[in-house]
Amino acid sequence: MTTAFHVPTVDISSYVGAGTPEERAATAAAFDEAARTVGFVQVLGHGIPTAVTDAFAAALDEFFLLPLEVKKQYRTPPEINRGYAPPKTESLSLSLGLAPSNRMHDFFEAFNVGAAVSDFPGLDLPAADYPENVWPAEASSFRGAVSAYSDEASRVARTLTTMFADALGLPGGFFERYTDHSLDVLRMNDYALEPGALELDGDLTGMGEHTDYGIVTVLWADQVAGLQVLGRDGAWHDVQPADGALLINLGDLMARWTNERWMSTLHRVKPPIVHGSIQRRRSAAFFHDGNIDAVIETLPTCVGDGSPYSPITVGEHIRAKLAGSRAGVANTEAEREAARVLAA
């Protein structure tokens, strides 16, 4: 008998507040079970005020509902992971080395902000990896609301890595030295296009099959269909956030660190089509990726009988992924993930 696919729910309030050691141990164990079996988790008790997420959602509307020609003024070169990305200028499956004819075909549009050189005075960080942000002048509330939400998502991500150390039997604060100048990016996505802007030909892809690149992703999303997760049964399953929940998933670097004890789960977004039209869907993924110069190698508590992963820096890994999704250069270092897509 096939077991129904289910995304576990974990309340992290014991880590957000002053939880007892017993409460934290139970929370860490629950997350460990979810990370080993599904790789996606519904997180409650995260502490982000509703007023912050409401203002953030309004800011997304303010920007994404601007005319396309206005939004295109904030487009940056593919190697600069900031600013605006118009529809059909990326292909996330190329981050795994997969895409039909290597064409850029994902129909989402996005706007990226993230950690910048100016955020870390005194550190000699590469501007190509920590570029300064661009902010749309035509959306007056955008910068303030986005920055407020980004700060909260960053707090949640760091709360999670505190919990990760407990769940993996590591010393307290283990991940801090790998993330004190973390290459964090907030990617805001919009999945609606004007009538006639998209050819409804063949199998449409809102966002192609991919794994996330870094340590952990904190995802805010509308309760609109579209997100699908690849289960261990080899089938794609629909996932929507529960009321008040954030969706949390792990990235490739955490899979490397844990020798795949924790899963970097493949996921995609299929177009939410209602009565022949694409239903608008918004999401925002906060990627907590780690320090650009941090070396990721299998954790001592996860080595077991050996690891297939050789050490790699965060920078080397992220650059190969972005070269695929944003510049169309197929990633040749993701054979294990690509095989999982092809088998689905």
Rank of each mutant, 00 (worst) to 15 (best):
E109W: 13
K72I: 05
V269H: 10
W262T: 00
A148Y: 00
G17K: 12
G173P: 08
V218H: 06
D11M: 13
I312T: 15
T332C: 00
P100I: 08
D190R: 15
L193D: 08
G83Q: 00
Q42C: 00
L227P: 03
S307R: 02
A128R: 12
G276I: 07
G39W: 10
L266Q: 06
R232C: 03
G231F: 03
I278N: 03
D293H: 14
L183T: 13
P195D: 10
V269W: 11
D54R: 15
A338K: 10
A285E: 07
N81E: 10
A327V: 03
I292F: 15
A334K: 06
N81Q: 09
W236A: 08
F142N: 04
F107H: 15
L299N: 01
R232M: 04
D212V: 04
G234V: 09
A116N: 08
G122H: 09
P136F: 15
V52N: 12
T179A: 12
G304Q: 12
D32V: 07
N259R: 07
V156K: 12
L168W: 07
N291C: 14
G202A: 08
E316Y: 10
A294P: 06
R268G: 04
L230R: 04
G324H: 09
M163C: 00
S283L: 01
L60V: 12
P21F: 07
N81K: 13
G114L: 03
G173I: 06
Q228K: 02
E209Y: 04
V185F: 13
I318G: 12
A85F: 14
A327G: 10
D11E: 09
P77W: 05
Y213T: 05
S310E: 15
A327W: 14
R326V: 04
W135Y: 11
V314W: 15
F56V: 00
S310K: 15
R187K: 14
A116R: 15
R326I: 06
V43N: 06
K71V: 01
K88Q: 15
M263N: 05
A35H: 05
R103N: 11
L65G: 02
R340Y: 00
A4G: 11
A25S: 01
P136T: 08
R36M: 11
L230D: 05
G47Q: 15
L219E: 06
T313R: 14
P136V: 14
L98D: 03
I12E: 10
G169F: 08
L186V: 09
L247F: 11
D238K: 07
S95A: 10
D166L: 15
P271R: 01
E260A: 13
F56H: 02
D11Q: 12
E138D: 04
V274S: 13
A192G: 10
G39S: 09
Q223I: 12
P126H: 09
A338Q: 04
S277G: 10
F63N: 00
L160P: 02
T9A: 11
S91C: 14
T76I: 03
D203Q: 12
L250M: 05
F31L: 15
V314K: 14
F63L: 01
L125S: 05
E194R: 10
S140C: 04
L92N: 07
R143F: 07
R158M: 13
G328E: 02
L125H: 09
A197P: 08
L68W: 04
L219P: 00
L230E: 06
